[in-house]
């Protein structure tokens, strides 16, 4: 199981051909209190970099981009019902969607945890 990160502050955790996607702890802290989440429908497909979900905090609305290409196989209903779950555990219970990877080689372009930490500290 590997976790990769995008420069736009999404994380993606891969098990087999399934990827769990969310926003990073750094992103959640920057957003502040999350008050609304809009997730894509199961069955929709996205290309890496597409607008995939929306997260709104008390401050602003932000798009969440697809960190990799693939089809949505599950959405995390608990963050829709209780958006604060994203702040409580952005990299655990606050995950956004699970995707079936269509191009696993895209993972190679993403950052590992150490590289992301450095990126986040400078962004």
């Amino acid at each position: 199981m590997t976790t990769k990160f995008t420069k736009d502050h999404e994380w993606v955790r891969v098990e087999g051909d399934t990827a769990t996607v969310g926003i990073t702890k750094h992103a959640a802290e920057q957003l502040g209190d999350v008050v609304f989440v809009e997730l894509p429908d199961v069955g929709n497909s996205f290309t890496q970099g597409d607008d995939m979900a929306v997260v709104e905090s008390v401050k602003a609305a932000s798009d969440v981009y697809a960190p990799v290409s693939g089809e949505i196989i599950e959405g995390n209903g608990s963050i829709v019902d209780a958006p604060e779950t994203v702040n409580d555990g952005p990299e655990e219970g606050g995950w956004f969607v699970k995707m079936k990877l269509s191009n696993p080689s895209e993972l190679d372009e993403l950052m590992d945890e150490a590289a992301y930490k450095e990126h986040a500290a400078n962004s």
């Binding site: 420069k7 736009d8 502050h9 999404e10 926003i23 992103a27 920057q30 957003l31 970099g49 997260v55 602003a60 609305a61 932000s62 798009d63 969440v64 981009y65 962004s123």
Partner: peptide, 13 residues
């Protein structure tokens, strides 16, 4: 995701 930091353009321009 968009809207991180104060710029109005994201890293993809």
């Amino acid at each position: 995701m968009s809207g991180m930091g104060m710029t109005s353009e994201d890293s993809r321009g």
